[in-house]
Each structure stands twice: as C-alpha cells, then as structure tokens.
Simulated scan of single mutants.
Amino acid sequence: MRTLEAKRSTTQPRSAIETVVRELRRSPLLALIFFVPVVILLERMAPEAHTLLFFVAIAAIVPLAALLSRATESVAAKTGDAVGGLLNATLGNLTELIITLAALQAGQYLLVKASIAGAIVTNSLFMFGGAFLIGGLKHHLQEFNRVNARFQASLLFLATIAILVPSLTSGLDRTPAGEFSQQLSLGLAILLIAVYGLGMVFSLKTHKELFASVGQAEAGEEPWPLSIGIVVLIVVTLLVAIVSEIFVGSVQAAAQHLGLTPAFVGFIVIALVGGAAEMTTAFSAARANRLDLSVGIALGSAAQIALFVAPVLVIVSYFIGPQPMSLEFWPGAVAMMLVATMAATLLSNGGHAAWYAGVMALAVYAIFALTLFLLPPGVTQ
C-alpha cells in the first residue's frame, strides 16, 4: 500500500511551480523565456534603441506564446474544444487589443485599421490554412465540425459587411468632421457587439450540442490540472501585455529604420506577432488531430476581432483618441477582408481538411503580403 502511494506521489506534481519548471525543461523553445526580463530591462536602460527592442520583443513573445498554448490546451481538455477555442481566441486577441489601444491613443488610425484588417486576414488565411497544412501532413484526411466552422464564417462575413458599408458610403459624407461616417460607425459598433454577445449565448448555451467536436484526438501529453492552467494563463497574459506595450513603443521607429510601410507593419507584422500564441495552439492542435480546436481558434479569433475588438476600439476612441475613429477602411483592406472571408467559408464548407487546401489558403495570404510589402508609402493614406 505504501509502495502504491509512493508511486502516486512521484507521478503527480507537488506544486504549480514544479509543474511549470518541468515544462520549461521539456520544451527547448521555452529557453527563450529569458528574453522577457531582458526586453523589460532593455526598455528601461535604452528606450531609444527601437530596432533592438523590436526584435527582442518578438523573441520574448515566442516562449510566452508556447506557454500560453500549453496552458490553453490543458484548460480545453477540461472544458471542451468549443470553450477552449473561445478562451484561446480571447486571450490571444488581448495582444492585438493592447497594441491597437496604444496606437489609438497616439492617433495612428492607419496603423489601428491595418492591424484590425491584418488580424482578420491572418487568422482566416494564414492560421486557418497553416492548421490544414500541418495537420494534413501528418493525417491523410481530417474531419471537423462544419456547423461550428460555418457559424464562425457567417459571423465574420456579417462583420465584413458592416465594415464595407461605411467605406462604400464615405462619398456621401460631405461634412468637414465626417459626422455621418462617425455616427454610422458608432451605431454599427453597438450592433456588432450585441450580435457577438447573442452568438456566444447561441453557441455556448442554447444550441451548444451543435458545436461538439467530431475529430478523434490523439493521446498527447498529460494536461495540467485546471487550477494550474488558469494561473499560468493569467500570469502569461500579463507578461504578454507588458511585452506588447514595449513592442508598440518601438515598432514605428523600427519600421521606418527597416524601410517598412505602416500598412505592412500593421497588416502583417503586428498581426503575426500578436497572434503568435493562438497560432502555436492552433498548429499543435491540428497536428494532434484536434482540428475543431484549430478551426475554433482561427475563425473564432477572426470573428471576435471583427465583431468585438474593432467595435470596442470605435467606442473607446471617443474617450482616449484625438478624435472618434470610424469603421471606414481603405478599399484594398476591404477587398482583402472580403476575399479572406470567402476563402474561409469555402474551406469550411465540407467538414474535411487536407494539406493542399492549406497550401491554397497560404498562397492567397502570400499574395496579400507581397502586395503590401511592395506598396509605395502613402497609397493607403
């Protein structure tokens, strides 16, 4: 009897700290965690070294994303893939929200709108397609709940239409202050937040049986206890917020030094860095044949940005911005969001995934990235 108790005591973690230390030793990628205190100290000692801070901040976000991914997978194992995907999307979007709030306060509305559009396109094409590719390279054919995928894609399409309307009617607004566009954007922001809230009630409460996972997940690493997973999520999220603020403070000057346009920085760089945590979880879940979790993260995050984050920024701009922000985007961004939404809808229609479908989605994303990289400065102003 004592022998059995001794074996159990050796297999169970004694504390949350010992569990985290064991994970740090198991994953070599987490060795980059030392960049977190480095970037915080560097920001205090050499705040003018923007380019160096830019790269060190990116290196610091990588291990934090890995920890956030591991903790979210543990929580998802206890709560289910639908709740796990929503939780990861919410915490992952916190980085984008912090970055855009800082840019909003500085009056950099082009960077804010590029970040919003870039996050929607990156999640719908790069993350979604990457999950199909990585999962398909290991599994011949994967299945996922197409009801959940089409639901998220429909929400995303609705939000894209709400962004399209102010852009189409911008020519009707002849007032100097753009009152029509601002009033329309404020009304649409309130409407989108209400629709998003009702969507959560529909998917998590009244019709949650429609969103159950259909894939057969592989046996992987033993998940953390729920309490440890939640604690790690909270701590890592706070650290991501701190590093993101440093990243925001250096990204503009570093971009100018590297010859990058604000559109490319917001659309590509900030979207990839801000979504690093979500991508890590989505890709690892797809490889473990948990494609429902990957789809929930990718499309759920895109829908949350379009239906919640963007409307919140419009409302908050009345309080912290130099002037109210509208939902009017430049035509190229609107076109890219529409194409990304249609591509996600087509990919999610059948409920099956193969690696070449991921290649096609990534190819569309690469076309957008190359276009923005070569775009002359000032075209999107």
Rank of each mutant, 00 (worst) to 15 (best):
Y109P: 02
E73N: 15
A59P: 07
A310L: 03
I58W: 02
S250E: 03
S284H: 08
V231W: 10
E328G: 04
S170P: 00
G300Q: 07
T51A: 14
V83C: 02
S9E: 11
T79L: 15
G130I: 07
Y196P: 07
V195I: 15
S9Y: 05
T380P: 00
N145M: 11
V165Q: 02
I228Q: 12
I305Y: 03
I17S: 08
V248N: 06
L42I: 04
T51V: 13
A71P: 04
V309C: 01
Y356F: 14
T345A: 13
G107C: 07
V75C: 07
P176T: 01
F35K: 06
V21S: 12
L67P: 06
K205F: 08
I228W: 15
F308D: 00
F329W: 02
G84F: 13
F319S: 04
A285W: 09
L86S: 13
G332A: 15
K205Y: 09
A263I: 04
T237Y: 10
V214R: 14
P376F: 11
G199Y: 06
G296I: 07
E96T: 12
G107M: 05
F144Q: 04
A159S: 13
A114N: 05
P47A: 12
L52H: 01
L125V: 06
V243K: 09
R150N: 13
R287C: 02
V339L: 15
E96W: 01
Y196A: 11
L24P: 02
K208Y: 04
V39Y: 01
F202M: 13
V251C: 10
I242Y: 01
D81K: 09
V235E: 08
N145A: 08
S181Y: 00
A271Y: 03
R174V: 07
E328T: 14
Q12L: 01
E179K: 07
R290F: 06
L67I: 11
H352C: 05
A254S: 15
A82C: 08
E218I: 02
Y365Q: 04
G178S: 00
P324R: 06
G92L: 14
G85F: 09
L291A: 03
A153Q: 09
E245M: 08
A16Y: 07
T11W: 03
Q381N: 06
Y109E: 05
L226C: 10
F211Y: 11
V364G: 07
V248A: 02
A159W: 03
